[in-house]
């Protein structure tokens, strides 16, 4: 499909432009920081000499624009702070260097990302499956008990802040029933079973809440879809009820679901961060919050931009998927 290839290329270019604009904006905003990172990093007796040295080492003596270009260069080619034996190497993609933690920001992010990503991706998969199938069931059993249950559940889900439900779940399943672990993270590479076992509660909590709006959406769209003429056509062709609902009905509902999912990606990351805190996992959110406390601006900027890039890229994927799913969306 050459059309699709062009569509992807054009969207990719647009995405890069958005990322550039965003990174510049973020850079300008965060370098209005009232505190001076160099002062924090210059050691106890902070003589003007040492301050100047630190400033030079951190490349804070350059103009904001120069620093920004250095930052961009770092992402593409890596960068080096200081000279000679004391030089600190930050390999590409370098999202900055945390002097308080003496680690490249990229390394810090990569150490935390698996936790946040495990929560977010697992929950998203779970809620898409649960939300769509419950919504579908509700639509097919419209007005019956199952429908009322699903609609009621969706309402409570929409109205519940995730951290609140997370804590309730810990209380009930972790403390009272003592069924599942309530905190801690085991890397997937250590033990996939323990990994999943520790994530069960966060996944279920985050998924249950987000599934709510997908139940509502799937139910409403499916009811609309099942009234369309082409559904009658499918029946008139001799398609069985299962085929009619899944192949002809649900197929049309996929497009709005994918659209909404694209819009929810940013919220997914936020939800994962709240969930991290509830279940005491040291993910990206914890890194960000502690860095704000430490006035570690390099990490704050790095984490923020990295996450934003991630969401923007994921959105690109959703956009392309949308184009693939709906033949009426012009790639031209």
């Amino acid at each position: 499909m050459p059309d699709l290839v062009w569509f992807v290329i054009r969207r990719l270019l647009a995405t890069v432009l958005v990322m550039l604009a965003l990174s510049l904006a973020v850079y300008l905003i965060f370098y209005a920081l009232p505190a001076d990172p160099a002062r924090l990093g210059c050691g106890k007796p902070c003589t003007p000499d040492r301050l100047e040295q630190a400033r030079h080492f951190m490349q804070l003596d350059q103009s904001t624009m120069q620093q920004y270009l250095q930052f961009l260069k770092g992402i593409v080619a890596g960068r080096t702070f200081g000279e000679g034996a004391a030089a600190v190497q930050c390999n590409a993609p370098c999202f900055g260097y945390s002097f308080p933690l003496a680690r490249p920001v990229t390394t810090l992010i990569l150490s935390r990302l698996p936790i946040t990503a495990s929560i977010a991706i697992g929950a998203a998969v779970l809620w898409l499956i649960a939300g769509v199938s419950l919504g579908l069931g509700a639509a097919l059993r419209r007005g019956r008990l199952f429908d009322r249950f699903a609609v009621g559940f969706a309402l409570v889900g929409v109205a519940s802040p995730s951290f609140l439900v997370g804590l309730l779940a810990i209380l009930v399943f972790g403390f009272w029933l003592n069924m599942v672990p309530v905190n801690g993270y085991v890397p997937l590479t250590d033990s996939p079973v323990d990994w999943a076992w520790h994530l069960v509660l966060p996944w279920v909590v985050l998924a249950a809440l987000n599934a709510a709006s997908y139940i509502r959406l799937t139910r409403a769209q499916m009811l609309e879809e099942l009234n369309l003429d082409h559904i009658t056509t499918a029946r008139a062709k001799g398609a069985g009820e299962g085929r009619v609902v899944l192949l002809h009905g649900l197929r049309g509902v996929l497009v709005p679901i994918v659209t909404i999912f694209g819009l929810d990606l940013g919220g997914l990351l936020g939800g994962a961060i709240l969930t991290e805190k509830v279940f005491s996992m040291q993910g990206l959110g914890e890194l960000l919050i502690s860095s704000v406390g430490q006035l570690d601006v390099a990490v704050v900027v790095g984490v923020t931009l990295f996450s934003a890039f991630l969401v923007i890229l994921a959105n690109l994927v959703v956009d392309v998927l949308h184009g693939v799913l709906d033949p009426r969306v012009g790639h031209a």
């Binding site: 965060f30 990351l269 936020g270 960000l288």
Partner: peptide, 15 residues
């Protein structure tokens, strides 16, 4: 709308 706004809200705290 599709932005990880919660992250930004946290980050803005630093400046």
């Amino acid at each position: 709308f599709g932005f990880p706004s919660l992250l930004f809200m946290i980050a803005l705290g630093i400046i």
